[in-house]
Write a protein that binds this DNA or RNA. Structure first.
Length: 266
DNA sequence: GAGCCTGTTCGGGC
DNA sequence: GGCCCGAACAGGCT
């Protein structure tokens, strides 16, 4: 499920164990989701390390441990983070297990599209590549000016494909892009260059709104966004557009299944 | 058994 | 180089 807010929610689970010390109990070294896990570094840095803090950026997470170790997690399509009790038994899709005194941190991912990587910095400061990630849509730094530049750089793109670019709209995934476009009343297959000023202004506002509101609902406790959102209707077969009462469309745009309302979006 | 899928990356074609 | 598309990755669910 994991887009911006879901990622934030999963990270908050592990963050509840901040201050506790962990040792590396298991890593699925041969699995593709762990191909960036440095085993030697793991031995050295996570022998017994305290979880200092956790950060999210878009769909990425970074957990800082004492000793200058950083565990990077991407949940892919089906990944999850959990905190398990002492009677925990490792499941076949559990790829990273960090054992603490009272809790066990687990990264699970059946489809292996996610990623668990281990990094280190000598001074314990956050890695430079993390600090240099672009602003997220809900942040103050994501200005209308930046948004206009992103659009100007990708005039020829299909607007939905642009929204899905993680270097431009970090955290926005398939359902969020559809939600934003539906609120903007713009069809997902429109070209960026075809958007007029009213539509661009609305796209900016709705992008920020959907990201912020998703963080306030899903991001906090996985509670559903409001009933008025497309989110609540899009998954059902024969789902109805809350605006028009008509059946929602499903078409492939930018290689992804898109849900939209023909009578509502232009 | 077939089809579908909330993500990313890569190769081919224009 | 820009951009698009399709495939590949792999498993669970309908």
């Amino acid at each position: 499920m994991p887009e911006l807010a879901e990622v934030h929610f999963h990270a908050s689970r592990w963050k509840q164990s901040e201050g506790e010390a962990f040792r590396l109990a298991w890593v699925s070294g041969e699995k593709r989701c762990c191909r960036d896990w440095d085993r030697d570094l793991g031995e050295r840095l996570l022998g017994e390390a305290k979880l200092i803090s956790g950060y999210t950026h878009g769909k990425r997470m970074l957990f800082a441990f004492s000793g200058g170790a950083f565990v990077e997690i991407h949940l892919g399509m089906t990944g999850s983070l959990s905190v398990e009790q002492p009677d925990y038994k490792r499941g076949r899709h559990d790829h990273l297990v960090l054992q603490g005194k009272s809790s066990i941190l687990v990264f699970r991912d059946p489809r292996l599209f996610g990623k668990a990587a281990l990094h280190a910095t000598c001074d314990g400061e956050l890695p430079a590549w993390w600090m240099e990630l672009p602003p997220q849509p809900h942040e103050r730094e994501f200005t209308r000016g930046r948004f206009d530049e992103l659009l100007a750089r990708r005039k020829g793109s299909v607007v939905k494909a642009l929204l899905l670019r993680q270097d431009a709209f970090p955290g926005v995934g398939n359902w969020m892009a559809d939600e934003i476009l539906w609120r903007t009343r713009v069809r997902p297959d429109r070209r960026v260059a075809s958007l007029n000023e009213t539509e661009r202004a609305s796209l900016y506002q709705e992008t920020r709104y959907v990201c912020r509101e998703a963080l306030r609902t899903i991001g906090v406790d996985y509670r559903n966004p409001p009933e008025s959102w497309l989110f609540r209707h899009r998954w059902k077969a024969g789902g109805i557009c809350p605006k028009t009462g008509e059946v929602l469309q499903r078409t492939t745009v930018g290689g992804r299944t898109s849900c939209w309302s023909a009578g509502w979006q232009r």
